[in-house]
Design a protein around this nucleic acid. Structure first.
Length: 274
DNA sequence: GGGCCGTACTG
DNA sequence: CAGTACG
DNA sequence: GCCC
């Protein structure tokens, strides 16, 4: 279990504790610990057993150390698992909606036993949110807008995040002999605020014949952080990176690189218009 | 043992 | 004023 | 929960 997943469980536990109405300072401690672990240069899993070094991390105390030992030892955190049983996992998604906090989610759950995005949206449309205590009409319309906003950016990544990821991948590609260019296309190249997935175009001698392309693809899949290969063809490979970003890499002969760049930069509507 | 951010917004 | 969310 |  790497630091990121440890931190993830801690963050999620904090969210669930919040829904559970736990002490807010204790909740903050979980988030602080998650942040500290995320930022820690060494893998926590390598330090396990070395209590002194773990305790030296600001934000990790006696209790959190126990939690870490439990996670690394048993692969799970009991508190986290129990809270997930007690509440609905969909509530964690709800928490991401602007203006929806744990108290409101708990309120909606107690009144309607609804805990998912679609359900809450329906309630809001039917005017069933405004009749709840402390919820007014404004709150309701604001909530509907927030759900809309959430849907718009869900499963997408802010451009700076996508940019860093793309640069790492492009570097990995350019490092390979016979690759001349590796350039992100798609919405990232268009400079959109958010990016759904990465489209990276590659060209050079290594893209020119079947054997070379196979070898290049073999090199691509060694990319650090690559979690799952979704599809592997002759000229294109799709995979998912750690963090869930999906990437398409297309290998192109140099003489079709320009038109491909045009096409894969899009947008779709722009291509249709052309 | 006791503090842990301050503030705007909403009902 | 109290509860809640957020920079 | 952590830290002072």
């Amino acid at each position: 279990m790497d630091n990121k997943s440890i931190a993830g469980i801690l963050y999620e536990t904090a969210d669930l504790m919040e829904i559970d109405g736990a002490d807010s300072f204790r909740i903050r401690s979980y988030r602080n610990a998650a942040e500290a672990i995320e930022a820690h240069p060494q893998q926590i899993s390598d330090l396990i057993g070395n209590d002194k070094q773990l305790l030296a991390i600001s934000g990790i105390g006696k209790g959190m150390l126990q939690n870490l030992k439990e996670m690394l030892g048993e692969g799970r955190l009991k508190l986290h698992a129990e809270l997930l049983t007690k509440y609905r996992p969909s509530m964690l998604q709800l928490l991401k909606v602007q203006g929806l906090g744990p108290k409101t989610i708990a309120l909606i759950w107690s009144a309607y036993q609804v805990s998912d995005l679609e359900g809450v949206e329906s309630l809001a449309r039917e005017g069933k949110i405004r009749i709840l205590p402390r919820m007014g009409e404004k709150h309701e319309t604001k909530l509907l807008k927030a759900i809309e906003d959430y849907r718009r950016i869900a499963g997408r990544f802010l451009i700076d995040v996508a940019e860093k990821q793309a640069e790492k991948i492009a570097d990995h590609l350019r490092h390979y002999p016979g690759v001349e260019k590796a350039t992100p296309a798609g919405s990232l190249r268009r400079g959109r605020e958010t990016v759904g997935d990465l489209d990276i175009l590659v060209t050079g001698p290594a893209c020119c014949d079947d054997t070379e392309r196979q070898k290049l693809i073999d090199h691509i899949i060694k990319l650090p952080g690559l979690m799952e290969i979704i599809a592997r063809g002759e000229n294109k490979i799709s995979f998912r990176m750690r963090g869930d970003m999906q990437v398409d890499v297309r290998l192109l002969a140099p003489d079709s690189f320009g038109s491909a760049m045009q096409y894969f930069t899009g947008s779709k509507a722009h291509n249709v218009a052309l």
